[in-house]
Design a protein around this nucleic acid. Structure first.
Length: 357
DNA sequence: TGGATTTGACCTGT
DNA sequence: ACAGGTCAAATCCA
């Protein structure tokens, strides 16, 4: 994923204010996460850990969990506040979901930051490498309405629940373009849509173009569900909790990493259509089949990594040292004494890695 | 039987 | 006229 960094959108988007309670909780969570990061750093420098620590994997999982919960707390706090105080809400289409966008951006930032400490490539180079594609010209209403966010990932799975509504052969393209809209479009009027198309250069990658923001509440419910799962699972698995939380309905379960391959957390029937977000027609839905029996593609080389999803999928032993070593929390996220999560993730000062048409 | 997917037809912009 | 986006009836599946 990657992009062109720009601060324009950050300033153009009104910053929601999280409630004090949410900020406090987020602050605690991030402080906890930082402690884990410090331990992890010590571990990476050769220090030995007490048996109580579960090793690098457990620490990394803890860090991710803290980050995610902090962001969820902020989101929930902000949402609650805005829903109670702002009853005259503007139509969803006219009010971008800044919180979710920020969360997305935060992950982008973490990703780019992680890459930036690679000695051979500075942040600017990484951002340049990050893929940027103009919104399809001459597109339909969705494409014309607002800028698109473009990602490249090994799976089109992103935690949201999508309904496919179309497929189109694209001229001069080997692969069809698939059209999805939020499954909650009817229920909540959510206008989010996305287009998925296999990359021409690397068919194992999917180019995902997002239009609009999710205005539905599916993410909140999912986050809660995931919290419930955390306690049971994270001692055993590397919990992948990237981006918006997974829908709790019969939708895609969160993905777990157990050291070798990805797998789904729930015993979702393989044929469950809602868990399928990958384009069909390429034979085996290469990006989504995540089971012991059918391991996903091996982790791409760092140079091929181009999406947050890849960051996650590359928490494999091959990628881990690079990624973990690059999480320079102090440099990238400020001092640990951040007062609240908005300060921690100083969103408005972070370059927004957003795709523009 | 209800909900999701498929796919040809239709609509819109260039 | 063409390409891309969306609709909606038909179909599939749990």
């Amino acid at each position: 994923m990657a992009l062109i960094a720009t601060g324009a959108t950050a300033t153009a988007t009104a910053a929601p204010v999280a409630s004090p309670a949410a900020s406090s909780m987020a602050s605690e969570l991030m402080a906890q996460g930082r402690e884990s990061a410090a331990v992890l750093e010590a571990l990476l420098h050769g220090a030995s850990l007490p048996p109580a620590h579960g090793g690098a994997h457990a620490l990394a999982a803890e860090i991710l969990r803290c980050c995610d919960r902090a962001l969820a707390a902020l989101r929930a706090g902000g949402d609650a506040e805005s829903s109670s105080a702002d009853t005259k809400r503007k139509p969803a289409a006219a009010q971008p979901s800044t919180r979710r966008r920020r969360r997305y951006i935060a992950y982008m930032y973490m990703y780019v930051s992680s890459r930036s400490c690679d000695g051979a490539r500075d942040r600017a180079a990484t951002q340049q490498e990050i893929f940027c594609r103009a919104t399809a010209s001459g597109g339909g209403a969705a494409a014309a309405a607002e800028p698109a966010r473009v990602e490249k990932a090994r799976t089109s799975e992103d935690g949201f629940l999508w309904r496919k509504y179309g497929q189109k052969e694209i001229k001069n393209s080997k692969h069809p373009r698939l059209y999805y809209r939020c499954s909650y479009k009817d229920d909540h009027g959510c206008t989010a849509t996305k287009q998925v198309q296999q990359s021409e250069e690397d068919p194992s990658l999917y180019v995902i173009t997002y239009f609009g923001d999710h205005t539905c509440s599916c993410q909140t419910a999912a986050a809660a569900a995931m919290d419930d799962d955390d306690d049971d699972e994270n001692s055993q698995h590397f919990v992948i909790n990237f981006g918006p939380a997974t829908a709790s309905r019969s939708g895609s379960p969160p993905l777990l990493y157990d050291g070798d391959v990805w797998r789904e957390t729930a015993a979702t029937p393989p044929s469950s259509r809602q868990s399928r977000c990958s384009p069909e027609g390429d034979g085996e839905e290469s990006g989504v089949k995540m089971s012991k029996e059918e391991p996903v593609d091996s982790c791409p080389a760092p140079s091929a990594v181009s999406s947050p999803a890849d960051v996650v999928s590359c928490s494999s032993p091959a990628m881990e040292p690079d990624l973990l070593g690059c999480l320079n929390w102090d440099d990238d996220f400020g001092d640990s004494s951040f007062v609240d999560a908005d300060e921690f993730m100083n969103f408005d000062e972070i370059d927004l890695f957003q795709i523009y048409s």
